[in-house]
Computed example of a mutant assay.
Amino acid sequence: MRVSMMNMYSNNLQSMQHLTSDVAKVNQQMATGKSILRPSDDPIGAAKVVTTQRDLASTSQYLKNTESLSTSLDRSETYLSSMTNLQSRMREITIGANNGSLSPEDRAAYAAELEELLESFVDVTNAKDDGGNYLFSGNKTDTPPIGVDANGDYFYQGDDSQREVQISGSSWMAGNVTAADFMFSTGGTDILNQTKQFIDVLNDPSLAPGDPAFGDAADDMMQALDDSLAGVSGAITDIGGKQNAIALMQTSHNERILFNEEVIGETEGLDYAQATAEFNLKLTTLQVTQQSFVQVSQLSLFNHI
């Protein structure tokens, strides 16, 4: 009798412990919304979730990279567009100043406006992003791209490096444009120094339209404007192509993120209706077992005398 009572007591205690554990597990599943709480619950499903989460994390990072890259390219395009506007007015002045009816004072007035435009051009080329980094200096982001030497001439002091940004598992894209590419890549004089030289010509009262020196300076200025506009327009076109590629990549990333989230949800997501039914069943069974355990634990030989 003693052995039978001990076995019955032990079996009831083990059953109650198992049920308590099961109820706690289902309760935790309902609290987290996950059917897989540990790898042992579903080894294959758990491995699938880990792999999918890893892909989700990397894809999300690529998406952030494209968003940051797109913002940076937008900013660069804005400043490049400003350069084209400045060059448009510089071209008007160059054409207007090449007029024999103008007085030296008129040409000096044009020169004064060109000086302001030149200063604005340098400021735009030396633009920074929100982090204080120079946009058009290559990897030398702490150095303004345009410097002035001892002779007062402009020169490029950045480098020609491209800052590559990873936008997918196998794709990288250059995230910057350098002033060396769109301003100092031509064989002739760059627009900054050519403008400086033309300003000197306009301020010289001994030189006027019709003089060979004036005509040569005006022709050189127009050529520099053509070369500069071609360089800046090419950079804007290149940015436009990159933005289109980024938009397509972002669409792909968003679709992949949505797919991964669905896979994770389907794999580890909890069926609340089924879980609730299971919770209620196990809880009821536990309550019955607890009541049985109380009755069994009170049994002794004296109860049968």
Results as ranks from 00 to 15, higher is better:
236 I>N: 04
64 K>M: 05
207 L>F: 07
100 G>V: 06
234 G>T: 04
47 A>R: 06
152 G>W: 12
2 R>T: 14
229 L>E: 09
266 E>T: 10
46 A>T: 06
113 E>C: 03
150 A>E: 12
225 L>C: 08
44 I>M: 09
275 A>Y: 04
78 T>H: 03
283 L>Y: 12
88 S>G: 12
226 D>C: 13
13 L>S: 05
93 I>W: 02
208 A>I: 06
246 I>L: 13
11 N>A: 08
161 S>C: 01
106 D>P: 06
260 N>I: 00
127 A>L: 03
67 E>C: 03
111 A>C: 00
43 P>W: 02
210 G>R: 04
204 D>Q: 06
200 D>E: 13
302 F>A: 15
121 F>Q: 13
40 S>Q: 11
261 E>T: 08
116 E>V: 09
60 S>Y: 01
260 N>L: 07
258 L>E: 15
289 T>M: 12
46 A>L: 09
248 L>V: 10
100 G>E: 04
164 E>L: 10
18 H>S: 15
233 S>E: 09
93 I>V: 13
247 A>T: 14
57 A>G: 13
290 Q>W: 01
194 Q>M: 07
270 L>G: 00
215 G>A: 11
149 D>V: 02
175 G>P: 07
32 T>P: 00
275 A>W: 07
172 W>E: 10
283 L>S: 15
2 R>Y: 10
277 A>K: 09
274 Q>H: 12
26 V>T: 13
282 K>S: 01
